[in-house]
Write a protein that binds this DNA or RNA. Structure first.
Length: 765
DNA sequence: GGATCTCATGTTTTT
DNA sequence: CATGAGATCC
């Protein structure tokens, strides 16, 4: 008892010990909401003698679920048996799998379709309905479908008010039929079908209501209507509903999340206890004040008076860079200064609104040899080769999965072209067979009548036999063994091996995937596929020591870092251009910035660029309107106009540049003019070896910048030496801006494209 | 049937 | 600019 509540503040204690019934916790950033949630779970068990079997705790991400599990375990000493703790989706899948006998259109082996599978199904639906996918873009349709499902609107309920929504209704309807015939559900279905099942079958609902006496929900502001309804239904019997949220951190409106569910909760449970967690344990007062100033203009907020014991703090640094390259360089310089101060690169996070912005940052860090980790780059499970392999496994598991079937029918190429494919689909359709089933019958049963002959027949039979053999093998061997057989028989490696490093990388990804299958020795194919569908690899993102984290603002939610750089604070980027004409969306952009600022413990750097390149061409940007909301006494870097003037001054000092030859700006600026920005300046001026060594020495630098265009230093065939890659041969060299881009083949590291001014290439005879 | 090219497209993306 | 899907060519 004492240990459970130890170290909790007044409000947190009140929350943990709140009497049964509905409880709403409004938790500011850094106020220890996860702690409250986990302690409450432990409290229920330890102090209220609740059997863990009767507790359901839901989160949005696997990561959050894992964290909670971990913390409950450390509070109690061991893992409570029977406790249900997981994401909304995982919880629903568990229920649906258990109840497959009661599902009308699905059997036990149903699979989960991800967004690319969904897109294929939408395209197929459009085809079936004879609709033009130019006029009705599949992803727009999919969006409409997803929105409907988030709102718990079935095709039958879908009210069409205009032409486009009528089309959406039809596509939605067809789409659902196709999913059912594939024995597949999309992510939204997992939630919606659970609710629909409960609506149709009060007896089944009753079973779960009885079981889940206590329900706890994390990030409640992110629930959509379907999730809200699910929770409400499950809690209807006991009404022990403990929800934690912060509407100021609602940043997933575009995914159907509706923070007004918090308001709805208050209305529907008027007796609910309301507890505010206002003490922030993370940030300095200055950071918190800046965050509050940013969020204040949003309307209809439940006022929270956030405070922290970390009085004072370092002022927020606001600065303007000439362009995105300089922005990145400046950040890099600051990170290096911070390292001199004793911070580690791993204490730093750099956040941005759009993924595209990560590129320049990456390049800059890469060139400097500074370690970084990129959160949420192209998801592993979404890579083509990995998806192929998953499609094989999914098809073996669920031969009704026509999407996977179509994906791999001729991958690797096995001589089944478009004509043969269509023939197969038509023939199978006429027999009311699924394509994979038809193929297997054709290949294994000589009695079956079919329209194929010659080469087509040969190719189809070969594949049909393989598929049939895999299905027979399915329950007899481990997933990894099954995978090996498939890879072997399809010669998948040869298919990927096109002699490029990319091909090798792809094969490595396949092997990594195989490794994941091998790790779980006894996992069934079904469980493995489910895990692959519902668990993103971001959940097991390993901690790279000392690496600076690069991530989107969305990805940053729930994390904290001593140092946070927020980049691209420009109108059109943050707030994003697509949100400028909509008050609600603008408010969400504001919350996004709020989330970003509140991730920081010690220091925040806000930067914007004078020019930024979008889709190839560069244009002048306006500093984010949100910057005006941060009181100047909290910042360092002067008013916007002062920053702009300084920025202009620096630009005019550039050698022969008025229009921003960005390419050359990086080095020429990093070491000198900007030192005033790097904090603290004393340490900056003392110099730092690593910063120096990265730079070329002064002479070379000047030469690079001043060299008139049109005279490359390098030409094809030249032998060069690079400090890291060793000796190599120049393949080509071309001038870009004021720099020279040299493509070099290194026997040891492959082909690299290098900027001459940074690479420090040495010409050897 | 497979490779190559062109053209449209581009916010965020917990599951 | 950079990517990917679809059309077109061989």
């Amino acid at each position: 008892m004492k240990t459970l509540l130890d170290g909790l503040n007044e409000a947190q204690r009140t929350a943990v010990m709140a009497p049964l019934g509905p409880v709403l916790i409004l938790a500011g950033p850094g106020s220890g909401k996860t702690r409250v949630l986990t302690t409450r779970v432990a409290y229920l068990m330890q102090e209220m003698n609740v059997d863990p079997w009767h507790i359901l705790a839901v989160t949005f991400t696997n990561k959050a679920a894992k964290e909670m599990r971990h913390r409950v375990e450390s509070l109690l000493g061991d893992q409570p048996r029977g406790l249900t703790m997981g994401t909304f989706h995982a919880t629903c899948v568990r229920i649906l799998r258990r109840e497959t006998d009661n599902l009308q259109y699905y059997d036990r082996d149903f699979v989960i379709f991800d967004s690319s599978d969904q897109l294929q199904v939408v395209k197929q639906a459009l085809k079936v309905l004879n609709l033009d996918d130019k006029k009705f873009p599949p992803n727009k349709m999919l969006n409409g479908i997803s929105n409907a499902k988030n709102e718990l609107i079935t095709p039958a309920m879908y009210a069409a008010s205009n032409y486009i929504s009528e089309i959406t209704r039809r596509v939605y309807s067809e789409y659902q039929l196709l999913l059912q015939s594939n024995n597949a559900m999309d992510f939204d279905d997992l939630l919606m079908n659970a609710v629909l099942l409960f609506e149709e079958r009060p007896d089944i609902l009753g079973k779960y209501q009885k079981r889940y006496e206590h329900i706890l929900v994390d990030e409640f502001q992110d629930t959509n209507t379907t999730q809200y309804t699910l929770i409400k239904m499950l809690a209807a019997r006991h009404e022990n509903l403990f929800v934690v949220g912060d509407s100021d951190q609602s940043i997933y409106k575009w995914r159907g999340a509706d923070f007004r569910n918090i308001q709805r909760f208050r209305e529907q449970y008027p007796e609910a206890q309301l507890i505010l967690l206002e003490q922030n344990y993370r940030s300095t007062q200055i950071i918190l004040d800046a965050a509050k100033a940013v969020i204040r203009p949003n309307l209809n907020r439940v006022h929270k008076e956030l405070f922290t014991v970390r009085q004072g703090g370092v002022p927020i640094v606001v600065r303007e860079a000439y362009n995105e390259h300089e922005e990145a360089e400046t950040i890099l310089d600051s990170v290096e200064s911070l390292m001199v101060e004793g911070y580690s690169g791993g204490d730093v996070a750099i956040m941005y609104r759009t993924n595209a912005q990560s590129r320049v940052l990456e390049e800059t860090f890469l060139r400097a040899g500074m370690p970084y980790r990129l959160v949420g780059a192209t998801a592993f499970y979404r890579r083509r080769e990995v998806k192929d392999i998953i499609a094989y496994l999914r098809l073996v598991h669920n031969p009704a999965d026509a999407v996977s079937f179509n994906r791999i029918l001729n991958v690797p190429p096995r001589g089944i072209g478009a004509k043969t494919r269509q023939g197969l689909l038509d023939w199978a359709g006429n027999q009311y067979w699924q394509p994979a089933g038809a193929l297997i019958r054709m290949a294994t049963d000589p009695e079956v009548q079919h329209p194929f002959s010659g080469r087509a027949l040969n190719a189809l039979s070969r594949f049909g036999n393989m598929l049939s053999a895999w299905i027979n093998l399915r329950d007899k061997v481990a997933v990894s063994d099954l995978l090996d057989v498939i890879l072997e028989q399809t010669s998948y490696r040869d298919y990927l091996d096109d002699g490029t490093t990319e091909g090798e990388d792809r094969w490595e990804n396949v092997m990594e995937f195989r490794g994941a299958a091998g790790e779980e020795a006894d996992i069934s194919l079904s469980a493995f596929l489910e895990q692959v569908a519902l668990v993103s690899e971001a959940d097991n993102l390993e901690e790279t020591p000392n690496a600076t984290t690069l991530l989107t603002l969305h990805a940053a939610k729930g994390l904290e870092f001593p140092i946070v750089f927020l980049t691209g604070l420009e109108d059109g980027l943050l707030p994003h251009s697509r949100s400028l004409d909509d008050g609600e969306e603008l408010a969400e952009e504001r919350r996004l910035l709020y989330v970003g600022i509140t991730r920081a413990k010690d220091r925040v750097y806000l930067s914007h660029a004078f020019r930024r390149t979008f889709y190839g061409d560069s244009s002048v940007s306006v500093p984010s309107r949100f910057l005006n909301d941060i009181p100047q006494e909290l910042t360092e870097g002067g008013s916007p106009s002062i920053r702009r003037r300084q920025s202009k001054k620096r630009i005019s000092s550039w050698p022969g540049s008025s229009s921003g030859r960005q390419e050359s700006s990086r080095r020429s600026t990093s070491a000198n003019q900007y030192s005033e920005w790097s904090r603290p300046s004393s340490e900056r001026s003392s110099g730092k070896p690593s910063a120096k060594s990265r730079d070329l020495d002064g002479d070379t630098l000047d030469e690079t910048v001043r060299r008139p265009p049109g005279k490359p230093q390098f030409r094809s065939g030249l032998q060069v030496r690079h400090s890291r890659f060793g000796e190599g041969t120049v393949i080509e060299s071309k001038l870009t801006g004021n720099d020279e881009e040299v493509t070099v083949a290194f026997p040891s590291s492959g082909i690299k494209r290098l900027a001459a001014s940074f690479a420090g290439l040495e010409i050897i005879e």
